[in-house]
Design a protein around this nucleic acid. Structure first.
Lengths: 167, 167
DNA sequence: ACGAAACATTTTACATTTAAAATGTTATGC
DNA sequence: GCATAACATTTTAAATGTAAAATGTTTCGT
């Protein structure tokens, strides 16, 4: 399979071959993500005694200068709300974030980084960026562009498959 | 930043710019993986009342016709050993795998799919392949090839950064 | 206004994950 | 041989994840 005879395959077989290739692509994608993620986790633990979800939480806040509600954080981090609650409780206890009620909507909190949170995050973010640079840095600028474009295609394709529930 | 003036940046700034791009690439990679993974999880749960780790566990065994030890499974699945223990216990309880002691090494088990395991896995694998086909199927064969090659580069780069612990 | 429905968050219960300690087995150096 | 180190697995504790119930707030139709 997968040799020069491919051109002789019928439609059904071609589809199956394509699906095999798609599975291989998925597995490679998963491997890459897992490798990078594992590295980031271990570095964050060793150098900052923190975790990836906590780092992501703070990164979302750093990016959104006006603060975020718990629900927004849940959506952006793609995890359930109950999870956000727990992490927020930890970070609040350590003085890295604070939550203030929103004047016009008493259901929501506005979550922001504290001064301490900003300065701690700045240190972590610099290291984070350098770790990723050391892992992806051997790619040429062209490679990075190509990957960005191809992965956008992937994202679109997955989102499209979401709607039409047929497989 | 990121405009036509890039060419005027000094070396230090260029590196920082490159790292920014690398971080963006990492985030996109993570998003794609999470999207696909979430879909697979939900489909496996809905159609087969199982989980992704359990499916992966069985997939590894299907691929390795001679059986695998717990440690080998842990390495191939890139999860901790404690995890393998729990999953093996479940699958063994459901009669999908069985474990026999290795004659020449009393520390290791040899884990294999049972007949039932093989037949259950076959059904799941067919659906799995079709789900992935529906998510990645819009990519051309060329796109898939390019992605495979670029991701191989990524894998190599990450592995290389592993050894030289400098960032 | 009033009641029902939608919304934002927290709480609860439970499953899963990792890292590290514990247990038992094998190999090695002296 | 015996102590020690390396190895394979299991167990444990803490963090993280989901789903669903509970709580309080807002909106909307009437």
């Amino acid at each position: 399979m997968g040799n020069a005879k491919d051109v002789a395959l019928d439609h059904e077989s071609r589809l199956v071959e394509d699906d095999h290739q798609a599975v291989r692509l998925w597995l490679r994608l998963l491997t890459c993500t897992n490798l990078i993620e594992a590295r980031l986790r271990s570095r964050l633990r060793d150098e900052f005694a923190t975790t990836l979800p906590r780092f992501d939480f703070m990164a979302q806040l750093e990016r959104a200068s006006n603060g975020l509600t718990m629900g927004e954080l849940s959506r952006r981090m793609m995890v359930s709300g109950g999870n956000i609650s727990g992490i927020a409780l930890q970070l609040e206890g350590e003085g890295l974030i604070h939550r203030e009620p929103v004047p016009d909507n008493r259901r929501s909190y506005c979550v922001r980084l504290t001064e301490l949170g900003h300065s701690v995050f700045a240190k972590m973010a610099a290291r984070h960026e350098s770790w990723i640079g050391s892992m992806l840095g051997q790619l040429s600028a062209d490679d990075v562009d190509q990957l960005m474009n191809l992965l956008r295609e992937v994202k679109v394709g997955v989102a499209h498959a979401e709607e039409g529930k047929a497989d």
